[in-house]
Design a protein around this nucleic acid. Structure first.
Length: 415
DNA sequence: TCTGGGGTCCTAGGACCC
DNA sequence: TCTGGGGTCCTAGGACCC
């Protein structure tokens, strides 16, 4: 049996954990740059605050209902996530951490699944303070579905362990809420008159194969209780890595773009080193704001093949600067730069190019020193000069909570 | 003023090979 | 006039996820 454990309103719950006065009150968490809503407490959901709503469009509701706003704070969420996952892993060795707030577990040989699920839920809540729901079913797709139903029950647990219970659950389950049915498929299915999971499951296999590719066919079989998606206990090596973030303001200034590009490249280099990976290709892309339809749009991009696979800050900044210079177009206001690394290989498998000069040893040494200092004195303590000092383009985080769990200086702020 | 960031997998089509 | 049959690899684009 597959179990899906999913934290309720995870980011909002993390924020509330250290501010208990917010319990029972509407809380929302905003995306980077305090752009749009990415998490809501139940109270905020009840007020009709939509997922993804831009903040500037709901100012009136925020004021009227006295909604508490938080900037997203991934350091805090990451730390709380690790605590939740550690607790879940105590119940079975078969664990797949699926996302920051979700985890699949496999339970074999348990007689009373209901009480087992309840134990998992209650223990995790007691030890972490994060509310969580548990869905249990014979396939991952059905466990996801069970979890969604569990959120609506008082016990927070839903076990679908018989054909009868599964059939009953599918009857009224909206087709667009199935894991694997996104916007495109939902529109298509609904236009064909398929509105519930039961109707989708009753479609002939040929129809699904023809219209929904192999991915859809797997999902369809999973709805019938045939497990096609296995538990992934070992993470696959990453294939690509990307640093992309909107600026705090639009800019067409080359100097500012240089700083931002260098700083994102440096961040990407740090991520690569942490995962012990090197990249062979670096892509740089500038983007204007697609919502500003009255302004000229441009998305110039370039891919640079590196002479050697690297992950040191010096070489990656250098390559990104070269890319920026080649794609920069005057007269546009840019909102974002993306730096993408593709063709990742493990540090230990790097092969050098005998026809190119290799400065890796010196540059790697420098990067390691950088990492060491930033780790000891706090990230951002030391950085490359090209990354800039003022960073006028840096993202807005007006409503950031203290680092309750990861910084001694901030812990004293807890009331 | 203000609209997230990071991934995965699959398919189709073109280039190229013998 | 007639114009094979089988592969592989790569890329772009589209779908999905949280």
């Amino acid at each position: 049996m597959f179990v899906l454990a999913d934290c309720n309103n995870f980011y909002a719950s993390c924020e509330r954990l250290f501010r208990p006065e917010l319990n029972g009150k509407p809380v929302i968490v905003l995306s980077n740059n305090d752009g749009c809503v990415i998490a809501r407490s139940n109270e905020a959901k009840a007020l009709g605050i939509a997922m993804g709503a831009p903040k500037f469009k709901i100012e009136e509701e925020i004021r009227q209902h006295n909604i508490t706003i938080c900037s997203s704070h991934y350091e805090l969420y990451g730390d709380m996530s690790a605590r939740v996952m550690t607790n879940l892993a105590r119940f079975t060795p078969e664990v797949e951490v699926y996302s920051i707030d979700e985890c699949f577990l496999k339970l074999t040989g348990f007689k009373n699944l209901e009480s087992c699920a309840l134990t998992i839920r209650n223990t995790t809540i007691k030890n972490t303070g994060i509310p969580i729901s548990i869905g249990v079913a014979p396939t991952k797709t059905l466990a996801k579905l069970a979890n969604k139903l569990a959120k609506k029950t008082p016990s927070g647990v839903m076990v679908l362990d018989t054909d009868c219970k599964i059939a009953e659950a599918l009857k009224t389950y909206a087709v667009e809420d199935i894991w694997g049915v996104g916007r495109q498929y939902a529109t298509k299915l609904i236009s064909e008159g398929i509105e519930t999971a039961e109707q989708l499951r009753n479609l002939p296999a040929e129809w699904v194969n023809k219209n929904m590719t192999i991915v859809g066919a797997r999902m369809w079989r999973e709805l019938w209780g045939q497990s096609c998606l296995q538990l992934k206990t070992v993470l696959d090596p990453k294939k690509g890595m990307c640093t992309s973030r909107a600026f705090g303001k639009l800019t067409g200034d080359y100097g500012e773009l240089e700083q931002a590009t260098a700083s994102y490249a440096s961040r990407l280099a740090g991520k690569l080193r942490r995962e012990k990976l090197c990249t062979m290709v670096l892509s740089v892309r500038l983007l204007t704001n697609r919502f500003k339809t009255d302004q000229p749009q441009a998305y110039p991009t370039i891919s640079i093949n590196l002479p050697h696979p690297v992950n040191n800050t010096t070489d990656l900044i250098k390559a990104s600067m070269k890319g920026l210079k080649r794609i920069y177009l005057k007269g546009f206001l840019y909102q974002k730069v993306e730096i993408i690394a593709i063709g990742l290989i493990p540090e230990t498998e790097v092969q050098l190019n005998m026809f190119e000069q290799y400065n890796g040893i010196k540059n790697n040494k420098l990067s390691n020193i950088l990492d060491g200092l930033n780790k000891h004195y706090g990230s951002g303590t030391i950085r490359m000069a090209t990354e800039g000092k003022q960073q006028k383009w840096a993202m807005r985080r007006q409503f950031l909570s203290p680092r309750y769990t990861t910084d001694w200086k901030d812990i004293i702020k807890v009331k």
